[in-house]
């Protein structure tokens, strides 16, 4: 007689699985990767490939030969880490630096905690911050590659808008003087050519954001709460002293703000799971980022802000409970 399957309900399952969700994140990152290749040419492609391959390889080796657990590289999570890491470093970063970053990201920040789903901090950001502290010169050299698809590029070298502002202010200039000297315009911020591969095009990042929302991969709470906090918090400071503090739109569109708020802060594993918690988490990131940008030593602070808030996630999850159905019985 035929042996039937028996199990407790439910007997069917939805279409979503970890792999598809992660793949959707990779797809959402593709416009950004495409823009970076358009701007920086093959070096951007090279960086992306090195990041992805290094992360996947590190995870494979650790899972298979050190932990001797099931190898889960097929779930695209290492691919995302690799891509994000590559998008977060300057375009002229040597390949071996990126490999070191990948080893730290996957080996230290992810696999030591027990692999996918267990890590406390966003692996890509841990990798990036490790590189930033270990290789400060390489990690802040924002000069563009010498050639793009064989064309000579007008070799902008030097600093990102955030860096320029920081340096200018340190030299005692006012913001309007700095702006005048460097010809800043908002249009340029939407599609700048300075910064890491993941920072250059706000539009490509926003396309990715819309895709993630439409596919219901992420919920908008964290991202919007970061944006809202940044606008309000930096807005207040800007209104107090527009010569000293940068304006909200500038803060939103420059640096890693969009990449961080859309792709890094929303990482499932290292963000709260419930809407109220997501909003608190986002507010924390927004405030810390602006504090670092305006008062800190680094021109950019979103990586640190996300990592700091990552540490609070278990606490937020503990205290922010979803809205329960029905009132408490008396």
């Amino acid at each position: 007689m035929k042996k039937l399957l028996v199990s407790p309900s439910p007997h069917i399952h939805g279409k979503e699985n970890t792999r598809n969700l992660m793949r959707d994140v990779v797809i959402a990152l593709l416009p950004t990767v495409a823009v970076s290749i358009y701007c920086f040419g093959l070096s951007a492609l090279k960086l992306a490939l090195v990041g992805v391959l290094a992360c996947v390889a590190v995870e494979y080796v650790i899972a298979k030969y050190m932990l001797k657990t099931k190898v889960t590289v097929c779930d695209y999570s290492a691919v995302i880490t690799g891509l994000l890491l590559a998008l977060n470093v300057p375009i002229n970063t040597p390949w071996w630096v990126l490999v070191i970053g990948s080893i730290v990201a996957i080996g230290v920040a992810k696999m030591t905690f027990g692999g996918l789903g267990q890590n406390l901090f966003n692996p890509a950001l841990v990798g990036r911050v490790f590189l930033l502290i270990s290789f400060p010169v390489i990690m802040t050299d924002w000069s563009t590659p010498a050639s793009t698809f064989g064309f000579e590029f007008d070799g902008v070298s030097g600093a990102t808008p955030l860096g320029i502002v920081k340096e200018g202010l340190a030299q005692g200039m006012t913001l309007s003087q700095i702006y005048a000297e460097h010809n800043f315009s908002y249009a340029e911020m939407l599609f700048t050519r300075i910064g890491s591969a993941g920072e250059i095009s706000a539009i490509a990042l926003l396309i990715g954001f819309v895709y993630l929302l439409v596919r219901r991969v992420i919920r908008p709470h964290i991202t919007l709460s970061i944006w809202g906090t940044v606008i309000v918090f930096s807005g207040i400071m800007w209104l107090c002293n527009p010569e000293q503090f940068t304006d909200p739109i500038f803060n939103l569109l420059t640096g890693g703000m969009l990449l961080g708020s859309i792709f890094m802060a929303t990482d499932y594993v290292t963000s709260p799971m419930e809407p109220k918690g997501m909003i608190i988490f986002g507010m924390g990131i927004g405030i810390i980022t602006i504090l670092i940008r305006e008062f800190g030593a680094y021109p950019e602070g979103i990586s640190f802000a996300i990592l700091i808030m990552n540490a609070t996630v278990p606490l937020i999850n503990m205290f922010c409970k979803p809205k329960r159905f029905g009132k408490e019985a008396k």
Binding site: L5, S7, H11, I12, H13, E16, N17, T18, L21, T72, D75, S77, G114, G115, L116, G117, Q118, R219, Y268, V269, S271, P272, M273, E274, K321, P322, K323, R324, F325
Partner: peptide
């Protein structure tokens, strides 16, 4: 349609919280 697929780690995506009609976790 029905065979249970291999279980993997919880990625804390919060989909179960979103789906729970009683607001549980």
């Amino acid at each position: 349609q029905t065979k249970r697929k291999e279980e993997s780690n919880c990625i804390r995506c919060g989909k179960c919280i979103e789906a729970c009609p009683m607001g549980l976790e």
